[in-house]
Amino acid sequence: MTTSVSPRGRHDARDDDATSVIPAIDGDQTSVIAAIDVDQTSVIPAIDVNQTSVIPQFADATSVLPAILDEPSAAPGTDSTDGADGKLYDSRAWRTRDRRRRSGGPVRTTARVLGEILITLGLVVLLFAVYEVYGKTAIINSHQNQLDQQLQSSWSGPTPTPTNSSGGKSAAPLAPLPGDAVARLYIPKLKKHWVVVEGVSLKDIRFAPGHYPGTALPGAIGNFAVAGHRVPAIFWDLNEVQKSDTIVVETKDNWYVYTVTVNEIVTPHSVEVIAPTPDEPGVKPSAAMLTLTTCNPKWDNYQRMVVHAKLVSTTPHSAGAPVALGS
C-alpha cells in the first residue's frame, strides 16, 4: 500500500515505499519546473479569458492545497480539473493550459517597438552631443595640421611678386584666395594657436578662424579682423581673454604682438567692430588693431563676442618667437 501522494494521480511502482508528499521525479527529468517554451515571456500560465479566477476551481474542494489522496486516482492523461472524480489537482493541466502568448498582439507590439525606437533616438542624440565636443575637435585639429603644413610650405617657397612691384619685399602682396592660409594666431592665455585662413563664409571658417576680406593684414594700420566658431577647438574660451592679455600673430615676415584693449558683447549686426578704426566707421585708422569675433552665448548665436587688441611690437620672423609665447 502506498502512502505517497502523486499529484499527477499516477501510481508509480517506485512510489510504493515513498513516504513524502513531493512527487517522484522521473529519471530523465532535469527539473521539476515545467519546461518553458523559448518564446514564452512569462512563466505564469496564461489565464483563460473565461476563467474568473486564477485558482483552479474544484467542485468539492474546500481548500486550494491538494489533498493527500490515499488511493490512486484516474489513469494518467486525463486533463480534468474538477474534483468530481476525486482528483483534486492535476498539475499537467496547468502546464498544458492554453498558452496563448499575451505578449503578442498588435497594440502591445507597436507600443514596445515605439518605445524602443524612442530610447534608441535618445541615445543617438546623446552620442551627437559627445560628437559635438570631441568629434569636431578631432576634425578641426587634423585640418589645422594640414593648414600648418600648407602655411609652412608657402612661407618657405618663393614670394610671388606683383607685376608692378619695384623688387625686394612686395609692398602690396597678392590678396590671398578664400580658404588660403594667411597667418598664425596665438593666444598664450588659452594655450591655443591656429592657422588663420582667408574669408569668413561658413565654408571658410568651418575648421579655422577666418580673416575678414577687405580688412587690414596683420601689423598693418587698420583692423586685422578675424572670425571663429565658438567651438571647443577654436574660440570656445574667448570669454577668458580680457584686457591686457597678449595675442601674437605670426606671418611670413614678422611676429606681431598685440595687447587686448576690450572684450565686449555686441549684436550680430555690429559691423562697426571690424571697421578700420574699430567702433568708429568712416574714421581713418591711425593704429594697427586686431579684432576677434565669435558667437555668444556658447551654444547660441544671438550675440557676438568681440575682442579688440592693439599692436605693441613687431619683430622680424628671423628673430624667433617673441617672449610672450614663452618657451
Partner: peptide, 12 residues
C-alpha cells in the same frame, strides 16, 4: 546653432 556664426551684419 552653427549658423551665420560670426559675421556681424552680413547675412549670406
Amino acid at each position: 546653432f552653427n549658423d551665420v556664426q560670426v559675421t556681424p551684419g552680413t547675412t549670406p
